[in-house]
Design a binder for these strands. Structure first.
Length: 550
RNA sequence: GGCCCGUUGGUCAAGAGGUUAAGACGACGCCCUUUCACGGCGUAAUCAUGGGUUCGAUUCCCGUACGGGUCACCA
């Protein structure tokens, strides 16, 4: 077979050579040990947690003086969605992940582009042509039905699936047959001619997992699809070589096709990048674990966290604790340090799929928010509300001082409250302060009868004086409790419940419910002072006069 | 089914031949407290399994089980 002739036949328009591209994309001039890595999403419009997971590459790159870039894997036109590139960039920016080069909303920056794969067609074809010239690739004219039949036959015979051996019908066809099909205009794909053997194993040093042994690839996989656009595998190898990528960080599902990637790198004589296969985030489904699914699990979408209003830093904190086993310890030791100050290491990444734990995220977020100032929380909540709760944003703007005061209750000091971890929860939690959104949610404490309710609230209203200090105010509450025969010390009531109608706990809880509409709320005196005297009295009176059953 | 990856408490996990097998979340209990919280203290709970190697295996090797992934002209 005259491979040179075949190459010309297949790619008559390709005049460049690999050497031309080597010259066009020279090795990067970077410090020793610099990591060049990327995030390479396909523009489907769906930005998921894994994309952010992947953004740890940014930390690695910037810790080492390297480069982090964005490449768009748009080789599958069918799945492409309008505005998808913006969505990725926007989502990454939101979490503070910035690119040094690559695709931008309206173009691109950097010397190793284009960064959209479809615009790199000539490069792929140049490499493909050289493979044909070397007898390492050949056209295949099989139809979808042919391949389906092949698959079925293999299934029936319990053989390995794939295009190889006797199933590789076009592998050694004479050039005349190829010419004949070409003249007929039959569609074709370019396949790799694999000399691999299933009995051999290839060893790869994974940046996260250490030594990984995989079976050598023995199938003639597709390099170029019938539209001349490469498959992921071929595009990945060409791009990561010419973009001078040093580390490929991707999900462990790519482990299955690693053999064909290293085979290509080796046969092209290019240095393999360091592959880093991350563990997949899992979810509990009934009693079994499974991969987070785009269709079933809303929490896979990055937008979920934005909508729910988890602060960006909290999401990063959570991700880092799941990703990097020594992060949590570091964070506990440096609670106020920004996560960017942490030195990230691949070796400390976990290799087994972790169950995604919303509760832990919430806890981390609560902890994080409890350490922020009222102003910071106010700003964060307002920013979120402008998009997701415009009515709240309006109220917050109109009554900024009031909202800040409300947010400030229980904040500061050594033991701040942890009432909410997301802006959505914050909105819900804070809603009782504002008279416009105040609703009564909880009822009277059990021990309080209708008569006591009247009595307690009347007396409280009579003695209530906003000029009192917190101590004086509480002394009055205590007095009131004692006057009505309730136990001033909860312990005493606990010991002898039959001696009292209830304890001071019931009394203060009644007041709390009257003022806030809830049994769970911060310190009553502080709340009252945020609400102001008029509103506090109004709520107390309203509650006192409501039907006894309330 | 083939191939691959993985397996330490309910969850996330440290540990890298000899440890009372860390820590965090969650659960529960106690304490503090006017309440709601916060906080403090504590309890329960883990090395999947069978063989090796070794004086000694959670740790190294092999098998098994289980879980997950992957077998496209999708990435």
């Amino acid at each position: 077979m005259d491979y040179q002739a075949l190459a010309e036949l297949l790619f008559p328009d390709i005049t460049k050579t690999i050497a031309d591209y080597e010259a066009k994309y020279p090795p990067r001039n970077l410090p020793e040990g610099a990591v060049v890595t990327r995030i390479a999403p396909s523009p489907t419009g769906f930005v998921h947690l894994g994309n952010l997971y992947n953004a740890i590459g940014e930390r690695l790159a910037h810790q080492t003086g390297g480069v982090f870039y964005l490449r768009i894997e748009d080789t599958d036109q069918k799945r492409e969605v309008e505005g998808a590139v913006e969505a990725v960039i926007d989502a990454m920016n939101f979490y503070g992940v910035h690119f040094d080069e690559g695709a931008t909303v309206d173009g691109e920056t950097g010397a190793y582009g284009p960064y959209r794969q479809r615009q790199r067609k000539e490069l792929y074809q140049t490499v493909a042509k050289s493979l044909v010239e070397r007898g390492l690739a050949y056209p295949c004219f099989c139809t979808e039905d042919d391949l389906k039949a092949m698959h079925d036959a293999q299934e029936a015979a319990k053989e390995n699936y794939g295009y190889y051996g006797k199933y590789a019908v076009w592998r050694d066809k004479p050039i005349e047959d190829i010419k004949a099909e070409l003249e007929k205009g039959t569609e074709w794909v370019l396949r790799f001619r694999s000399e691999g053997d299933a009995a051999n194993t290839v060893t790869v040093q994974d940046g996260i997992r250490g030594e990984v042994r995989v079976q050598e690839n023995f199938t003639d996989f597709v390099l170029l699809k019938s539209d001349g656009i490469p498959t992921y595998h071929f595009a990945h190898v060409c791009d990561d070589h010419f973009m001078r990528t040093t580390h490929v960080i991707r999900d462990e599902s790519w482990l299955a096709t690693l053999p064909i990637h290293v085979q290509l790198f080796d046969i092209l004589g290019w240095a393999r990048p360091v592959y880093c296969h991350t563990a997949t985030l899992m979810k509990m489904d009934g009693s079994s674990k499974r991969k987070l699914s785009k269709r079933k699990d809303p929490e896979l979408a990055l937008s979920y966290y934005r909508e729910a209003g988890f602060p960006q830093e909290a999401v990063m904190l959570y991700l880092l604790t799941v990703l990097n086993s020594n992060f949590e310890e570091w964070h506990l030791a440096n609670p106020d340090a920004n996560s960017r100050e942490f030195t990230f290491s691949l070796e400390k990444m976990s290799t087994s799929g972790a169950l995604f734990d919303l509760e832990k995220l919430d806890n981390i977020a609560k902890e994080y928010l409890s350490r922020q100032t009222a102003d910071t929380v106010y700003d964060g909540l307002l920013t979120w509300a402008k998009t997701y709760d415009p009515a709240l944003a309006e109220r917050m703007t109109a009554k900024a001082d009031f909202y800040k005061a409300a947010i400030n209750v229980g904040r500061g000091g050594a033991k701040p409250r942890k009432d909410y971890g997301s802006w959505k929860d914050a909105a819900r939690f804070l809603s009782f302060y504002d008279p416009e959104t105040f609703v009564r949610e909880d009822g009277c404490p059990e021990n309080i009868t209708a008569e006591y309710k009247q009595e307690i609230l009347s007396r409280y209203l009579d003695t209530l004086d906003f000029a009192d200090s917190q101590e004086d105010w509480f002394a009055k509450v205590r007095q009131l409790t004692d006057d009505l025969g309730f136990a001033v010390q909860p312990k005493k009531y606990k010991k002898n419940p039959e001696l009292y109608p209830g304890s001071i706990v019931d009394v203060t809880n009644l007041m709390r419910v009257a003022v806030t509409g809830r049994q769970n709320a911060p310190d009553l005196w502080e709340i009252s002072h945020v609400l102001g005297e008029a509103e506090t009295r109004r709520r107390l009176t309203e509650y006192k006069e409501a039907s006894p059953a309330d």
